[in-house]
Structure formats: structure tokens, C-alpha cells
Amino acid sequence: MIQKRVKKSLRPTFIRVFLSLPKIWVMQVFSKNDKMVHLVQANHNLLPVIHRFGIRLGFGNKTVEELCFDYEINSDFFLAIVNTFHNKNFFPKDQLLAFSPLLLVDYLKKTHQYYVDYSLPRIEKLIHRLLMSTPKQNSEMQMIEKFYLAYKKKLLEHFDEEEQEVFPIVEKLVLHPDQVADKNFDANFEKEHEHVDFELDDLKNLILKYLVPEYDELICNKLMEEIYHFERDIHDHSRMEDAILIPQMTQLLRAAE
């Protein structure tokens, strides 16, 4: 009896160790010769990322390299972005730092656009529909919608600040470094990004832990899927800014001095 109990208590640990190891070994890193359709089949969350590069469906059997050539995209940069997005543990920092900051700025602008045009309005709509599905549009639940709207407002302000102040300076530093007047520009968004993370996490917890039990489950499923998808996307986005763009910018500023 005692033996049985010990075995049982040990089992989860073994499974965890066993499962966690192969995960690292089999990390899937896409290469130039992979067919583009294979990327989406492996991870459908990559489709928006591929779209951000301007690549449209109708891949046929073309490889990543062939399609990047057709669309005049730097295939190494494309793969670095796609692989980073696909694998949580994959972050080729040196390789990413070596690309032109212009490529990254262009990609970051497109992700902003995706959030502004699609993710944020979609979450907003679903929260509203979820709220309408609760009895008498529960007044406490309305606070979740208000919380989201305040969060969205702050996020849009943050995007705006980056697009008005940070991205133009990076572009100028690359193209016309002599025209940059303020070389002491201090751009550090790690704190702001942390806040964005916290509040998104809070939104999830408020819904998961404290939603009233009467609601439309299909809307709720969709909403949570959308929030998790957005969370993953923006996390990757912030990581690119904090670990790649800002160091690149600091280096450019130093070189321009």
C-alpha cells in the first residue's frame, strides 16, 4: 500500500521531466527550403505574421525562399521573425541585431496596425457581446468593459508615442544621421511593456475568476481565444522592441555622436 502511494506521487515528476526534455530537442525551426504552406499547417497563428510581410495566400508549393523572392522580402529576416514567434525559447538575438533596423521598424509598424485594426476592436466587440449576454447586463461586469477600454486607450497612446517619436528617429538615424538633433533621446519602454503585460493578465484573471456564471459560452470561448492570441503576439512584439530595437537605437545614437 505504502509502495503504491510513493509510486503514484513520483509519477507526475517523471512525466514532467520526460516531457520537458524532448520539447527542447525537437524545437521546430523553419528554414528557407520549407514550403510556406507547411508553416501555417504547423502553426496557424503564423498566418497573421506572414500577412504582415505582405505575403498573400495562394502559396502553392512554393518554398519560403521562393515566396520571399517574389515579394522582395529579406528571407533571413522573415525566418528570424517567424521562428521567434513560433518558438518561445528561440531568440537569435545576435542575428536579429545584425538586420537593418529599418526592416524591424517596418515589421513593428505593421504589427501595430494589426492590433489597431483587428485585435483590439475584436476583443472590444467580444467583451461587449459577452457583457450583453449576462443577466441585466450586470453592472459589476460592466466594469470589466471599462477596464478594457481604459487599457486599450493607454495602449493606443503607447503605440502612438512609439510611432511619432521612436520609429522616426530610428529611420532618421539610419538614413540621415546628421539630421538628428537630439542625440540624448532616452527610449526605454520595458516598464511600459511590463504594465501592458500586467493589465492584460489582470483582464484574463478578472474574466476567468470573477465572471458571473450566466453568460454566452460561445462568445466567452471566442473572447478568451482572442485574448490569448493577442497576448502571445504582443509579448513577442514587446520582446522585439526591448531586446532588439532599443539596443540598435542606442548603438546608432552613440555612432552619430
Binding site: 461586469m141 470589466i144 477596464f147 483582464l203 478578472l206 470573477y210
Partner: peptide
Amino acid sequence: GIKSIPGLTVYAIIQKIVGP
């Protein structure tokens, strides 16, 4: 599991610890 002040505020309202 709630970190931000806005998040804590909403929790306090949902739990009726404060009124909206």
C-alpha cells in the same frame, strides 16, 4: 492574481467592496 491598480479596482467593484 491581479497586479495593476485598475485591475484591483475592478475586482473591488465586482466583489462589492466599493460601489461603482
